[in-house]
Design a protein around this nucleic acid. Structure first.
Lengths: 205, 205
DNA sequence: CTTAGTCACTGAACGCCGTTAAACTACTAA
DNA sequence: TTAGTAGTTTAACGGCGTTCAGTGACTAAG
């Protein structure tokens, strides 16, 4: 074991694997250490503590989520782009349920993205900023109803609505007592309802 | 300590206090035991394990949430009742943040309501069933657009949207990088947008 | 060629956690 | 008086996050 300078990266990769395999709940420093072929104490040379390590993993997850919006990014019409972004978000949550759970559902456990992360407001890196950007573009183009002139509120509406769809399904999808409909159907209905409720319809004006 | 048959109830009460004080994350069987003046092992005589105990606490929280809808329940118009229910939900999440966090945000930690709980579909006991009931009433009265004829989907939309508003704020309200608007404003906008998007407007038809 | 220093890591320990098994006490019914 | 049960304690097991004192490998300075 003379040379192993990649331990930092190896720890990150194994941490991600372990989280996706067993969830954040099943993750432990000792398991990670044994997977990475290292003592638990060694982790603390590379990361301040468990929280810092998880935050580092989360940063890469956030990037993956943002990349899931790449196809939507090429849509010219800003309103349609918002819809595609919303659908892409729910699709992401279905295709990467473990990632989604970790990224969007573990904040109660005290794990959230680093507020000091640079490029937080950058639409090219930050998924939320990406949505905000599309919404602001639509507002500037006069596509939203005049009483909804604040892009922040509009963005929060879309984000909350779609986050709710994905989270509700990820959380209660297994519980038959809710009688849940397929999430993509609900996601489309959510996009339609919100856009119809918030934009000026093409007919009027 | 000859007589202490109320240990079961005392444990539940102290458990609730402890959770509201330190969150589910800060809750532990040993802390609860010392608060209740009992050994940790004694808890296992009354509850199968930590999960069962938390589920019991959750049951009472669910009841409290349902009671938060009582004022909305007296609204005759089914569509307006849905709006009032949504607002009451977000209000509940703001006034009882710890309760809300535990009830609605700890499912990723494996804590959710007991699927075997009787009265799960009862609007008088089950908050979700209450909303579903109001929606179904509106559908029956022809208040929703014909393409949205499935009350389950409609209910999931309202629940997801409002859950999203409350959860998003409870989760990221402290993060200034999101630039969040006041949650009640967003909640009203969410109700307005969804209802405008999903119901037949009084003018048309 | 030695020496000091730093990087990456180990071994052992601390105190907390959920949970279990066995024993013990108080009471109650036969 | 005896048997049984309800409620609890003591003690322990294994796992957890974290810390601390060391230890070997390597590098730069004298």
């Amino acid at each position: 074991m003379t040379i192993a300078p990649d331990t930092h990266e190896r720890l990150l990769a194994h941490a991600r694997d372990l989280i996706l395999l067993e969830g954040v709940e099943g993750f432990s420093m000792r398991k990670l250490a044994s997977r990475a072929g290292v003592t638990a104490a060694a982790i603390y040379f590379h990361f301040a503590d468990k929280g810092a390590l998880l935050q580092a993993v989360m940063a890469s997850g956030c990037a993956a989520l943002r990349q899931a919006f790449n196809r939507a990014a090429s849509v010219a019409d800003p309103v349609e782009r918002v819809r595609q972004t919303g659908l892409a978000f729910v699709r992401f949550s279905l295709e990467n349920p473990a990632d989604f759970r970790f990224l969007c559902l573990s904040a109660p456990a005290g794990i959230s993205r680093d507020p000091a992360d640079p490029g937080l407001g950058d639409p090219a890196q930050d998924a939320y900023a990406f949505l905000l950007h599309a919404v602001a573009e639509g507002v500037a183009a006069g596509r939203y109803r005049p009483e909804h002139s604040d892009p922040r509120v509009l963005t929060q509406l879309f984000a909350s609505g779609l986050h709710g769809v994905a989270a509700f399904y990820a959380t209660n999808g297994h519980d038959p007592s809710f009688g849940l409909a397929p999430p993509l159907v609900v996601a489309e209905a959510m996009c339609d309802a919100l856009l119809r409720g918030l934009t000026v319809s093409p007919g009027q004006l």
